[in-house]
Design a binder for these strands. Structure first.
Length: 301
DNA sequence: GCATGTCAAGTTGTG
DNA sequence: CACAACTTGACATGC
C-alpha cells in the first residue's frame, strides 16, 4: 500500500503552528522569553496531536513535522533547553501522547531540516551549526517517534566527489539517534540520484527519491531505475521506502518548473510506485486539500 | 482591522 | 561583486 504524507501545515483546516523570532525574544528578559517559548512549545505539541488526529480520520498515513516545532530551539542567543521551560512536564506528557497516537494508528512521522543544514560544507562553522540543528531534530524525533530526518547533500563547491567525501566524514560526528534516522534526498540543481547512491551505500543511509527534482535535474537513470535503486537503499536498513511527489506550477512547459503547484497532477505520479509499500510525501501548496485529492485520484485507478 | 515588512542559518546562478 | 531564488507562512508593527 502507498501511504500519502502531508507536509507540515494545513491550508484550510484551522490547525496552525505558532512561531516567534529572535528579535522579538531579544526585547524581553530571560524569564519572559522562556514563558513565551514554553507557551509556544506546548501549543505546537497540542496542534501536532490534532494534526495527527486529522491524518488518521482522513486515511493519511504520514506527516512531516515542521522544523520550528520548538521555535528558535538552537538559536545561539535565545536557544533553550526543554528542562528550563515552565511547562516541561506537560511538554513531555504531550510528546508521549503524540508518540502513542502515531504508534497506535500507524502514522509515520518525518522531519526535514532546512536548506542551511549542509554536512558537505567546507566551512567548519556551517558543519557545526548543522550538527547542532540535526541533534535538536534527533531529540525531537526520539521524543515523538519520527523515523526519518531527511536532508539534501548541499552544495558542490566545484567538486561533488570531494563535497560528498566531507559529508561522509562529518556523518561520523552525528549521534546514534541522528545517524540511524538520517536520509539524503536528490535535489533539483546539484545532486541527482546517481550522485547520491554511492554515498548511500558507503554511509549506509537510505535515499529519499524526489521524482519532481529528478525531472528537473535528470541523470542517466529513468524513473523506474531510480525507484529500484532507491528501494534497495531502504531494503538494506529494512525500512519502508520514502518518496516525494510534486507537480510544476504552470505545467511542464511553464516558466519555472521547479515551483510547486497547488495540487498533484495524477499523471505525474509514477506508475512504478503504484504497487509498492511506501510512503509518498505530497509537496503541494494546497497542502491537505492536495493530499486528499491525490488519495481519491489514486483510489480511482 | 488591514497592509506591510521581517525572519538565524547556505549555496547557486544571474546580471 | 551583489542579489534574488529556493519556499513560505506567521507574527509584529504601524497606520
Amino acid at each position: 500500500m502507498i501511504r500519502l504524507g502531508l507536509c507540515c501545515i494545513f491550508r484550510e483546516e484551522s490547525i496552525r503552528f505558532r512561531q516567534t523570532t529572535a528579535s522579538v525574544l531579544n526585547r524581553m528578559n530571560r524569564r519572559e522569553q522562556l514563558e513565551k517559548l514554553s507557551d509556544l512549545c506546548t501549543a505546537n505539541l497540542s496542534n501536532l496531536l490534532e494534526a495527527l488526529q486529522w491524518c488518521h480520520i482522513n486515511r493519511i498515513g504520514a506527516f512531516r513535522i515542521l522544523s520550528p516545532l520548538f521555535p528558535r530551539f538552537t538559536h545561539p542567543d535565545v536557544g533553550y533547553q526543554l528542562e528550563n521551560l515552565e511547562h516541561y512536564t506537560e511538554i513531555l506528557r504531550l510528546c508521549r501522547s503524540i508518540n502513542r497516537f502515531r504508534q497506535e494508528n500507524a502514522i509515520r512521522l518525518s522531519l526535514h531540516p532546512d536548506q542551511f543544514n549542509v554536512l558537505s560544507s567546507p566551512h567548519e562553522l556551517v558543519v557545526a551549526n548543522t550538527i547542532r540543528e540535526l541533534e535538536y531534530q534527533g531529540r525531537l524525533a526520539e521524543l515523538l517517534g519520527a523515523d526519518v530526518i531527511n536532508i539534501h547533500a548541499g552544495g558542490a563547491y566545484g567538486n561533488k566527489k570531494e563535497a560528498l567525501m566531507r559529508f561522509q566524514v562529518n556523518f561520523d560526528l552525528l549521534s546514534e539517534r541522528v545517524a540511524t534516522r538520517l536520509t539524503v534526498e536528490n535535489d533539483d540543481r546539484v545532486y541527482t540520484p546517481t550522485d547520491l547512491l554511492p554515498l548511500c551505500s558507503t554511509v549506509g543511509i537510505p535515499l529519499v527519491y524526489d521524482v519532481h527534482h529528478h525531472r528537473c535535474l535528470s541523470d542517466n537513470l529513468d524513473i523506474g531505475e531510480a525507484t529500484n535503486h532507491c528501494l534497495e537503499t531502504w531494503k538494506r536498513v529494512k525500512r519502508e521506502p520514502c518518496f516525494h511527489i510534486s507537480s510544476p506550477q504552470d505545467g511542464w512547459q511553464g516558466q519555472n518548473i521547479r515551483n510547486h503547484a497547488d495540487y498533484i497532477d495524477p499523471t505525474d505520479f509514477p506508475e512504478e510506485w503504484m504497487r509498492l509499500d511506501a510512503t509518498v510525501d505530497v509537496e503541494a501548496k494546497a497542502k491537505e486539500l492536495a493530499v486528499l485529492r491525490l488519495r481519491d485520484d489514486l483510489d480511482q485507478w
